[in-house]
Design a protein around this nucleic acid. Structure first.
Lengths: 225, 225
DNA sequence: CGCCCTATTGAGACTTGTCAAGTCGGGTGG
DNA sequence: CCACCCGACTTGACAAGTCTCAATAGGGCG
């Protein structure tokens, strides 16, 4: 069972270990917002006034350079939290890959509540920590792995959230998004997919629906073995 | 003026904004340790029982895979802090590039003190945040930049701490370390250095001492412009 | 059905990696 | 003090991987 299999949105990770009263305190600070598919929750360089808990939908974290290049930093899912920053402005943009809903918190208010409820602070740290490990893994993949291994790494990671009982994955993003996530060109991603299909590791039901035929082999490839 | 220019080791970032009494409380928890050049402060997979404030010396953060590949995640300097983790074991190793001294804290005690001194917690978050931004930049570099641009990116970043008034940088690490940091092969790094020298951007006083001849050009290259 | 957008495929260029030889410099021992 | 040795770095030639550019295929929608 993955989180996205549940009909009800998963309870955000920030609520872990909180009492009912504490959860209500947190809730009372939040305002639910609906985000249309394809639009931004916030842009890179926006004022950092809010934090967001993802209730439903999938988002993509991206970073742009002055030269117009884009690096996709992560894909994030319901239950996760975003908007962290250590500056006046956020260093990345977050965009909805699906229609989505989020709970929006005023940054200052939320921080203040963290002082009152240490467990809430702890949960935030834990989320940050997981994000960090993710970044480590991605950095490793980009530095050390070949194109087809990176593509497997992507499928492995994205699949962890998106996969159903038949090993089908809905790719919610474009090939360009995947390429920018992996530091590859769109054609290279496409070729890697084709090769993996030819090798019987995956199959396509449609251009955006992959079936993992050989999960063990996929994992080995993702790990560079 | 960079931190490493000072004769006295820079006061650790964790002390920012603390009262004298609070600083003393923090100090009372710490135990100074001397780390010989080349040895590890801790290894990947070690039990995460300590946190470290770097008093003197330069360290390298590395992550190994089961296949024996290595990704260098960062180079860290006096005033910085390491040992963060969100698990029972640390996900990375930290190795001294120079003879070094650190202040070691018991993780549990330090965390407890963070509860008592909110500013201390805030400082920790701020350090984590800066680390995160660094990781973002590095991820971007590895995903989007060419070999010679990455080498410039490295010089730009490492130089920020290491450079003296004559634009000389002491490379404290081997070419292999640089290569593993940038996701390149040692020969590629070497060729990039040679080309940058031929182009008059840098010069070598010795194999480990670079002079930045054209900082503006170096920056442009590092930014991929 | 035709259009448009995205994805795939192919051919060739370019970048980076691989392997091997050569150079440099520091340290050791004669 | 010099010769040698060793490791680290550099350079060269070639192979492999990835990118670029261009053409083709496929799916969704009017």
């Amino acid at each position: 069972m993955t989180q996205t299999d549940d009909k009800t949105p998963p309870r955000s990770l920030i609520y872990t270990g909180l009492t009912i009263e504490e959860c209500e305190k947190v809730d009372s600070l939040s305002r639910v917002r609906v985000i249309p598919q394809g639009s931004y929750l916030f842009h890179q360089q926006d004022e950092a006034h809010s934090l967001y808990s993802i209730l439903d939908g999938v988002f993509m974290v991206e970073r742009l350079s002055v030269t117009g290049l884009r690096q996709v930093m992560a894909f994030i899912f319901p239950g996760n939290f975003t908007g962290f920053t250590y500056d006046q402005t956020v260093e990345y943009g977050v965009r909805a890959l699906t229609p989505a809903t989020v709970a929006e918190f005023n940054r200052t208010e939320f921080m203040a509540l963290c002082e009152v409820i240490p467990q809430l602070k702890f949960n935030m740290d834990s989320i940050t920590g997981k994000l960090m490990i993710r970044l480590f893994d991605q950095l490793f993949a980009m530095g050390q792995k070949k194109a087809h291994e990176r593509v497997c790494f992507f499928l492995q990671n994205f699949g962890r959230w998106q996969i159903d009982e038949n090993n089908n994955i809905d790719l919610l993003m474009s090939r360009q998004d995947i390429a920018d996530f992996l530091g590859l060109k769109i054609e290279t991603v496409s070729r890697a997919f084709s090769q993996l299909k030819k090798d019987g590791v995956i199959n396509f039901r449609s251009s955006n629906q992959v079936t993992i035929l050989d999960p063990a082999r996929l994992k080995r490839l993702a790990d560079g073995i």
